[in-house]
Every structure is written in C-alpha cells, then in structure tokens.
Amino acid sequence: MSHAASCSLWNRLSIRALLIAGTALLVTAPPARAGLGDMMKKATDKAAKSVEKKATPTAPCKAVEYDEVVLELTNDRVEHILAAFKAAGEAGAERPALVEKLNKLNDERGAIWDKNYEAIQKTQSKRDDIKGCYHDGYKAAEQRRAEEYSKRALTDPVLLAKYQRLAQENNAAAMKGDSAAMNRMMQGMHEEMAPTPDDSLQVRKQCGPLPPKSAAEEKVDALDKQITSLNDQIATVDENVAKAQAQKGGMDDQQWAAALERIRNYMAYSGGGKSSSKSPPCGFSSAEAEALSKHAEQLKAVLG
C-alpha cells in the first residue's frame, strides 16, 4: 500500500511562485490611504486571504491513509464491488413496487390536503387556541394552589403531620434504596401543590372542548401512518441491499460505504472516472487510479 505519495500539485507549486503571485497582487492593489503599518496589515491580510482561498500550501496533499474502514481500491476489489452490485439485485426486488405504492399514497394525501387545506387550517388554529387556553388555565390553577400551600404549609397541623410522616417514610425508603417508594413520597408532597381534578374541570369548562378531528384530518392521519410504514419498509430494503452488496464485495458495512464514497469522489474529479492526468488525484494511489479508470464506465452505470 502506498501511504506516502505526495500530491503532484504540491510539488509543482513552489514558495517562489507564490511569492511572485503575492507581490503581483500587492503591486496591483489600490493605493492605501492609511499609514504604512495599517497598509501592511491590510495587504498581508488580503494576501493571506487570497492565498488561503486559492492555493494555500498549508499542507501537502497526501495519499489516503488506509485503515480498518478505508481499504485500498485495488483492481480486484473494484471488480468485487461491481460484481456485488449485480448480485445484490435480488435483495432490492420489491423496491419498485413499494415506491409506486408510496407515490400513490402521497398523491392521495396531497389531493385531500389541497381540497381541505383551508378547513384543516381553521380547525387546527381553533384547536391551538383552546390548547393555549388550557395551558394558561392550568398555570393559573398551579399558581393559586402554590399560594394557598405557602399560606398553610407552616400552620396547618394536618399538613405538618403528613410531611412528618412522608419524611420518615422517605428516609426509611432511602436507607433501603427503594427508589419506587421514594418517588411515591415525592408525589405525595407534590400533590398538595398540584391542580386538582376540580381545577381541570373548571379550566375545560371555561375554554370549551377541543374540536374533534374532521373526516379529512382522520384520512390524512391514516395515510400518514401508511406513508411512514412504507418509508420504513423501503429503508429496510435499502439497508438489506447495502448489506448484501457489502457481503458480496467482501467488506463490512462501513468499509463498503467508505469505498463507494471514495469512488464517487474519484469520479467527480476525474471527468467521470477517465482521468487524462498522469498523476493520481489527491487522496488516491496510482494503483487505485488505474483500477478506477479501467472500470469507469461500469462504475458510472451502477453509481450514477
């Protein structure tokens, strides 16, 4: 494996060339009105930005570091990948039918939504208003209960007795590590401050009931469930295809994904895989470039 091949671009660009380019940039820059220090700062900033944007030689372009995820794309491996695409077709056989079904459901949902949009929005808006009213009502009830509680917490003998008992029970539960019992104690303390069922009834009476779902909303909800289920099924099919491909290709899932990603990367920067340059692109060995170039057409057909 070739780990150390440097990118030819780096080798071709010398510091001297960059200096010439940088000096030319400064000479053509508009005259500065500020002092020399300021001008130098601006010029160096500009040069730095320009160089940074275009061709900063901040690090030599190296060949990829192979590891347990990134495997070398040898000719043999590339041929295995291509064979895997052909062989794993079975795992994805049901996909087209699922896609068709999904499109149909999405169309159906879209039609219902379009026809009933105004009515659905109106109902949802009303529902939101009532929910907001419930929320405000419960908050007000909580506040009222908390105020009542603070007034009687230190004077009500019944409450004091209850807390004394709860504290003892809590300590006993803590000694035993009984978290369920401790939670019950906490609940006992909180219930004194929480709104009562009477409070809830009052709030609901004041705000009115939530509007029931319309027939269109019920239909949209039912379609949404089916759409989610189909999306899940298609995702599972795709996962199975990828697994089958990776297996046929002699790789694990991660290695397979990394290999395809690198092939796409190579193809994007070498005009569809057929590079005319003698040097391999940055991040690829000569052997890899040769193997990928040799199978460019087939790779393009399966990877798009």
Binding site: L13, T56, P57, K62, V64, E65
Partner: peptide
C-alpha cells in the same frame, strides 16, 4: 475540510 491545495483534497478521507 482538509486544508490543502485544490477542491478535491477537501473530500479526501483525512
């Protein structure tokens, strides 16, 4: 993004 020359380098797995 890998800090080197050229856009291709931005995507190399390093």
């Amino acid at each position: 993004r890998f800090d080197a020359i050229g856009e291709v380098a931005e995507f190399i797995p390093l």
